[in-house]
Design a protein around this nucleic acid. Structure first.
Ligand SMILES: [Mn+2]
Ligand SMILES: [Mn+2]
Ligand SMILES: [Zn+2]
Ligand SMILES: [Zn+2]
Lengths: 146, 146
DNA sequence: TGTTTCTCAACACTGATTGTAGATAAGGCA
DNA sequence: TGCCTTATCTACAATCAGTGTTGAGAAACA
């Protein structure tokens, strides 16, 4: 994702208006590695601007996704997650207990589908999702089993 | 997934009652390779038993998943999909246009996470989702672009 | 500054899934 | 078989993430 300043110019260049709410959301997303849900972005934005509505957050997240500045991910945690890291290709670690999502920057070169196994699909992308327990949930699982 | 007869015994052995509705759902799932949603299972079940309720379908699908006879998949198509194929490990092809899901039976052995890249996660499983266009949607996309 | 067009925020709505509770039926036993 | 206990079934209401609508308000641009 670009910086808030660059996003301001990008929005103007695309005929979108730049409002205080949108700039607030730009700042909130800047450097956020947690893959926040719309709700989480709203909570963080509210700390800077009490009256911002959840709908506005959704709108702006969709605008950013449309411009390719963030990506939206459905990782099975019950809510769409948004990812400002669109510059390096990566996969994801998902905690099956608390839903935490972390980047896994690693190349897995051998995702070639064997001949004939693609059943006629025209395959455009492959995502790998690693599911497990994050350090925090691992810790509490340990304590429970003692 | 076991056969309807075996599932009947399994349910009884687990203290669950075997009803005509449940057996109807067993039959519907038997050999279904489409990874149906609960709604799709309900539609198919209704053809054999007009009055079966959607809630009963959800309940039975959850029971089967709890017993390990089917698995439930969230592949980002908007609905949970159910998979009676729990016997051979496989990955999935998902059509990004119509949501069709197909098995991809192929081993991708090199999914080892590089040392230190797991961020302390205890990784239990890795799923690969291949997204693209199914043969039918590919065909209609072709016709549109001519 | 005035005009146009986009955006804001409140509200109602959707669609998948879950919760509730009384009616009903399964399974065990005499 | 007939009764009893208990799980299950159905209809209905509720939830929850996300979307559609609309009048008020603000940005862009001349
Ligand atoms: Mn990411
Ligand atoms: Mn499958
Ligand atoms: Zn966790
Ligand atoms: Zn398709």
């Amino acid at each position: 994702m670009k910086t808030p300043g660059e996003l301001t110019e990008l929005f103007r260049a695309n005929g979108r208006k730049v409002t205080a709410q949108r700039q607030c959301i730009f700042r909130v997303l800047q450097g956020d590695m947690t893959h926040p849900s719309a709700e989480a972005v709203h909570v963080a934005a509210t700390r800077q601007m009490e009256t911002i509505s959840l709908k506005t957050v959704y709108q702006t997240l969709h605008d950013l996704a449309e411009l390719g500045e963030i990506s939206s991910l459905d990782l099975g945690t019950g809510m769409i997650r948004f990812d400002p890291n669109v510059d390096d290709p990566h996969h994801h670690l998902v905690c099956r207990h608390c839903g935490k999502v972390r980047d896994l920057v690693a190349a897995f070169p051998d995702l070639q589908i064997p001949n004939g196994a693609d059943l006629g699909f025209e395959v455009g992308s492959a995502e790998i999702v690693f599911r497990g327990l994050c350090p925090e949930c691992r810790q509490s699982a340990l304590q429970l089993s003692i």
